[in-house]
Design a protein around this nucleic acid. Structure first.
Length: 268
DNA sequence: ATGGTGGTCATACCA
């Protein structure tokens, strides 16, 4: 039995609770990191997850926007929430879990989308996104405490040309502008992180995890982007068994615009 | 160049 972690921007955990429970029944990840839960902590549907076999839950939620949750079958310890840009948004939650002989620190992230205009001088949301990335540089894969690390979530940036349906047409679109993709790859490498999705799936292959709601036929147009990521400390490359991007979830009834990504590790 | 859809919370805001 490998150890598995899934990440999914659910775009309202309460509206899509049945979808999440169906996903857990069918794929049985050991842990699920949710983003955009849009749910205050006192209204989080803890009991439904407990009944599904996920007894360990850490949440960081607020009313209306953002929010992350880490749901696990195994005990979670040392929950920590880092605030970014002096704004009280719920966009980060880290926990520690045991997998085989390793202790894993798992960062669950929801990076700001950044608005429409890719100019920090006129768009405060884009300035916020760049400021957020700047502060993310403090996240290192190896801290010298003996823990392995994962950093997962909706990072709202598609770094490679093959992470978008058209590199040329998206160069001036927020999520794929050079300032974003270059900052993103620099902070990943400087932090010592391995892009585990790309470690498993060759970089020349197009892969997407998000398709806009604003398409008449998302599957036919297939104008997707890889906005959701699974990074790991380099030691986890050797333990990685597979990556699954659940494209079919975009076609489920009343779907999120993001699909789950599952990483399986040979750690038990 | 524009608007297209979907979620929250109640009127626009955010994605």
């Amino acid at each position: 039995m490998p150890f598995s972690v899934a990440t999914w921007n659910i775009n309202s955990v309460r509206l899509r609770l049945d979808l999440v429970l169906q996903f857990l029944r069918d794929y049985q990840p050991d842990m699920l990191c949710l983003q955009e839960t849009k749910c205050p902590d006192d209204l989080f549907p803890r009991e439904a997850f407990h009944m599904a076999g996920y007894e360990h839950i850490e949440i960081s939620g607020q009313k209306g926007y953002h929010g992350v949750a880490t749901i696990s079958r195994r005990p979670l310890t040392e929950p920590a929430r880092v605030g970014f840009c002096n704004i009280a948004d719920c966009r980060h939650l880290s926990t520690i879990v045991t997998a085989g002989s390793k202790r894993l620190r798992i960062h669950n992230f929801y990076v700001p989308a950044g608005g429409d205009e890719p100019d920090p001088a006129i768009n405060p949301k884009f300035a916020h996104k760049l400021g957020f990335l700047e502060e993310m540089k403090a996240m290192n894969a190896v801290y010298g405490d003996g823990h392995a690390s994962l950093l997962v979530g909706d990072l709202n940036i598609a770094p490679l040309e093959t992470d978008v349906w058209s590199h040329k047409q998206l160069l001036k679109v927020v999520s794929h502008t050079p300032i974003e993709t270059e900052t993103f790859e620099a902070l990943r490498k400087n932090g010592g992180w391995s892009d585990l999705m790309r470690h498993y799936i060759p970089p020349h292959e197009k892969i997407y995890t998000w398709w806009s709601y604003r398409a008449a036929d998302w599957a036919a147009a297939d104008r997707g982007r890889r906005l959701d990521h699974i990074w790991g400390s380099p030691d986890l490359e050797n333990d990685l068994a597979s990556i699954t991007i659940l494209r079919e979830a975009r076609g489920w009834d009343r779907p999120s615009d993001h699909v789950p990504v599952i990483a399986r590790f040979n750690l038990d």
